[in-house]
Amino acid sequence: MAGHILIIDDERSIRSTLSEILGFEGYKTTEAIDGQDAIKKIEEGTYDCILCDIKMPKADGIEVLEKAKTLAPDTPFIVISGHGNIDTAVEAVKKGAFDYISKPPDLNRLLITIRNAMEKKTLVAETRTLKKRISKGYEIIGEAPALKGILDMIDKVAPTDARVLITGGNGSGKELVARRIHDHSHRNRSPLVELNCAAIPSELIESELFGHEKGSFTSAIKQRIGKFEQADGGTLFLDEIGDMSLSAQAKVLRALQEGKIARVGGDKEISVNVRVLAATNKDLKKEIEAGRFREDLYHRLSVILIHVPSLNDRIEDIQTLSLHFLKQICSEYGMIEKTIDEAAIRKLQGHHWTGNIRELRNVIERLIILSDKTITEKEVDMYIFPK
């Protein structure tokens, strides 16, 4: 079956004709004789698309649309209007209708519009599913007291525009903290743009941050929009900011102070509305003493300080994290989910984790690949900590 369509029209002949045409195309149809009947059917049933007349007794098409947007917001709503109701049909589109079709409906246009509307619904559903999968991939897992303190801090900080400096060892989860802050902020409908300062050569970092104009240097063959502009209205996450050059630090400081940037090779000032989150595994106070980091930038970035504990400081979370990674990685590989016994967990808890959670995930992935259905202490000794 191609889909279930609700047809709403007070003219029986139109309902019958549409039902016959759509039935021939493989659609299941349900008919509603007026606006009130339509609202009842939307409350009681689920539809892949709604076709609705504008002028009807008991409740007009606009009223039905407004109710449908509350009851079934993802269901595409197509307005069928007489020539005298075009302005009303346009108003309906502004209020969320997918499209409108004039009476008498052109068969080809009707079928194409229905197909496009249902394809859009499918894409919206797929996008939502993908976003859920992605967000699950960035969950902060654990019950350790130190972690709960961080989550409480995030809940307080996220709704504000305060800049946050996140510190902690490599692989401890600094990026997860930044993502959670963004996801729980009022900026979460706008992008979270990331830049790893350690991964960009010092001569290119300013172009990455602020963009450049065509011809501003040898390889600048076209204009480039930088990370600050890309994050306008959203959040910019500067990872490993302790590795940023002093020249770039000065420009970032100016951008934070004035809310304006200029592209490399350009004179025009561009206003940007960006919340900046920064992270580092370095001791920035020691970097300041050594003359490698600007003290004024440090104070600008560290309105709120969040330190992410190492995995060695939250040993009690190793079992929870291991089970989480088992489920996640087996799902990614399309495998039947494996288990891990208590002796293997104790072995993992006794290890000194220099690479933190990232190292633990790699270890679990290796054990999943090399072990049988149940991961035992023997396999941990064999594949992870050989003597």
Rank of each mutant, 00 (worst) to 15 (best):
A162C: 09
A162W: 06
A162M: 14
A162I: 04
R163G: 09
R163H: 13
R163P: 07
R163Y: 05
V164N: 04
V164Q: 05
V164S: 06
L165H: 03
L165I: 03
L165G: 04
L165S: 07
I166T: 04
I166A: 02
T167C: 13
T167H: 13
T167E: 14
T167P: 13
G168A: 12
G168L: 07
G169A: 14
G169D: 12
G169N: 12
G169C: 06
N170H: 06
N170L: 03
N170E: 11
G171M: 06
G171E: 12
S172P: 01
S172L: 04
S172H: 08
S172V: 08
S172E: 10
S172W: 05
S172Y: 05
S172F: 07
S172M: 08
G173K: 00
G173S: 09
G173I: 06
G173L: 08
G173Q: 02
K174C: 11
K174W: 05
K174P: 11
K174N: 13
E175P: 02
E175S: 12
E175Y: 04
L176N: 07
L176Y: 12
L176A: 13
L176Q: 07
L176V: 13
L176W: 03
L176C: 13
L176D: 09
V177K: 11
V177F: 14
V177H: 12
V177R: 12
V177P: 10
A178I: 10
A178K: 11
A178S: 11
A178Q: 08
R179T: 04
R179C: 01
R179V: 03
R180S: 14
R180H: 13
R180D: 07
I181W: 05
I181C: 01
I181F: 09
I181G: 00
I181Y: 05
I181A: 02
I181R: 06
H182W: 02
H182F: 00
H182S: 10
D183S: 15
D183C: 09
D183T: 14
H184T: 10
H184K: 15
H184F: 10
S185G: 04
S185F: 01
H186C: 04
H186S: 10
H186P: 00
H186D: 12
R187H: 01
N188W: 08
N188K: 14
N188D: 05
R189L: 11
R189K: 15
S190M: 15
S190G: 07
S190N: 15
S190R: 14
P191S: 09
P191E: 09
L192G: 05
L192C: 08
L192Y: 13
L192R: 06
L192F: 13
V193C: 10
V193M: 10
V193N: 09
V193P: 03
E194H: 11
E194M: 15
E194F: 11
